[in-house]
Design a protein around this nucleic acid. Structure first.
Length: 498
RNA sequence: GGGCCGUUAGCUCAAUUGGCAGAGCAAUUGACUCUUAAUCAAUAGGUUCGGGGUUCGAUUCCCUGACGGCCCA
């Protein structure tokens, strides 16, 4: 990239010549254009005669996506956010000078045009240009018109070109925006208060993950980008807000994959006096509502697989899933040696120091999770892998918790909240004591959180929903990078000569 | 972190056994008053991702690095 390509050199030269001829390359404003789709929607049904009878001029503006120039007449398609339309420019209607300028416009330029509607011989609704102006000169050539931009690296690095060229990409991000809007509407209408809690936290908590570290100079302390907002949201329950939610970014300093971006969007909500069972119902209804809105149905396809989001969804305890889906005999489930052997066979050996719950969740990840294609709630997670969840009343070895799986991926995690400060303090201390050098576990106990629980948190249930994964599901996107506008990539170090 | 695959003109892609690096679109010039992947004629455009090696000769084979994709952890 240190040497400018011939195409760009020629464009710069052409732009300079136009400027010298008195054409403004980046004018301040033009008379407001109408959205192209509004014109197409309103007049697209009229025949040639009816269009001719319209005594009206229309103003449009958009980027030139294709151009076909003849001697004294030119066609081009311009595209705005709403749609695209063909323009017809003729020397005889535009005048010799204006037409000469029109022919200088390049694919990629943004232009403005005013004119009348008519139908071409091939019956396409077209704007006969009476006046045209350059709005923004483009100095970079657009990708090839037929194949467009397909190289994934270039698409992610130059998302703006991807958006110009690929309609499906624009549609995906419109749908993402709609989904986020629906989530907000749902929780607001259900009486939840939207809040914002710290992104920079002095003590990480609320999940098991490696954090990003940053430094505050004035305070001279390290701060961590949050891996979850959970412990702050629950402080708000203590404060008396009974239904709260937060929809924002979390940061985890881990690998990048088709399912993981270092920053990702999570919706967390907490509801006093509810239990995890109430949340299962809420989740089913919420997902079904969103699917009906954005897909028109609860029977969707994801990468070729039929997914039925119509409630109620399947429910299974973790233990049941290990035997029923993972095919582990029930009598082996408490047998560490047998489980250890299975993990070794699966290529994920354990050291032997892990709690039994860790064996179960590891085996679950390997043998069960990929097979949970239809929406499935897995419940009764072992207490030793659920440090913030309330113990089950009948069996304190497990918690009142569920995780939701769809298309073999975890999409949500929820539980009835542990609000006994004594139990919480013990579990935190145990976690820190057994931490070793595992930097996914916080190195210190968040005593202020314990203090909050001692003030008293009402019984409550809370849930986190992975918004990116939900959007992947509903937009049929195979990679998380397809639903994040600017996914994290290794920097490319572009040097430009000016 | 490991394995496999990829990187050639602005974009999409070719290149036989290791033998002059090519096409389409885009660009430039010309012709053309209803095209839509417009057409026709001509022109220009390359550090074949970087570095090293083998060879008379490397886009091609080997080593190494960069970036990306997919799979696994």
């Amino acid at each position: 990239m240190s040497k400018e390509s011939q195409v760009i050199k020629q464009r710069r030269k052409k732009a300079q010549e136009m400027e010298e001829a008195g054409i403004e390359l980046y004018p301040n404003a033009v008379p407001a254009p109408a959205p192209i789709s509004s014109i197409v929607d309103e007049y697209g049904g009229l025949d040639a005669e009816a269009l001719e009878g319209l005594d009206r001029q229309f103003r449009v503006a958009g980027r030139i996506m294709a151009m076909r120039k003849f001697g004294k007449v030119s066609f081009c398609h311009i595209q705005d956010e709403s749609g695209s339309i063909q323009l017809y420019a003729a020397r005889d209607t535009l005048g010799q000078d204006s037409y000469k300028v029109f022919k200088k416009y390049d694919i990629g330029d943004i232009i403005w045009a005013e004119g009348t509607l008519f139908r071409t011989r091939t019956n396409e609704l077209t704007l006969m240009v009476r006046e045209a102006r350059l709005v923004t000169k483009s100095l970079q050539p657009l990708p090839e018109k037929y194949h467009g931009l397909t190289d994934k690296e270039l698409r992610y690095r130059h998302r703006y070109i991807d958006l110009v060229m690929n309609r499906e990409v624009r549609d995906t991000f419109r749908m993402r925006s709609r989904i986020v809007q629906l989530l907000r509407q749902y929780f607001s209408s259900e009486g939840f208060l939207e809040v914002e809690t710290p992104m920079m936290q002095p003590i990480v908590g609320g999940a098991t993950a490696r954090p990003f570290v940053t430094h505050h100079n004035a305070l001279d302390i390290d701060l961590f980008l949050r891996i979850a907002p959970e412990l702050y949201l629950k402080r708000l329950l203590v404060g008396g807000f009974e239904k709260v939610f937060e929809l924002n970014r979390n940061f985890r300093n881990e690998g990048i994959s088709i399912q993981h971006n270092p920053e990702f969007t999570m919706l967390e909500f907490y509801e006093a006096y509810a239990t995890y069972e109430d949340l299962m119902e809420r989740t089913e209804n919420l997902f079904a509502m969103i699917a009906r809105d954005v897909r028109g149905t609860t029977a969707i396809t994801y990468q070729g697989a039929e997914i039925n989001l119509e409630p109620p969804w399947k429910r299974m305890t973790l233990e049941e899933s290990l035997t029923a889906v993972g095919n582990i005999p029930a009598n082996e489930l408490k047998d560490r040696d047998a489980l250890s052997q299975r993990l070794k066979d699966a290529g994920a050996p354990v050291t032997g120091d892990e709690p039994l719950g860790k064996y179960w969740t590891k085996l679950f990840d390997l043998l069960v999770e990929p097979n949970l294609v239809q929406p499935t709630f897995i419940t009764h997670y072992p207490t030793d892998v659920s440090p913030l969840a309330r113990r089950n009343a009948e069996n304190p070895e497990v918690t009142d918790r569920f995780e939701l799986f769809i298309t073999g991926r975890e999409i949500a995690n929820a539980f009835s909240e542990l609000n006994d400060p004594r139990d919480q303090a013990r579990r935190f201390e145990e976690q820190v004591a057994n931490r070793g050098d595992d930097d996914e576990i916080p190195p210190e106990v968040d005593w202020d959180y314990i203090n909050a629980l001692e003030v008293g948190m009402p019984p409550a249930a809370g849930e986190g929903i992975g918004v990116d994964r939900l959007v992947m599901l509903l937009t049929d996107s195979p990679s998380i990078r397809d639903v994040i506008l600017f996914p994290q990539l290794r920097p490319e170090h572009i040097r430009r000569e000016r």
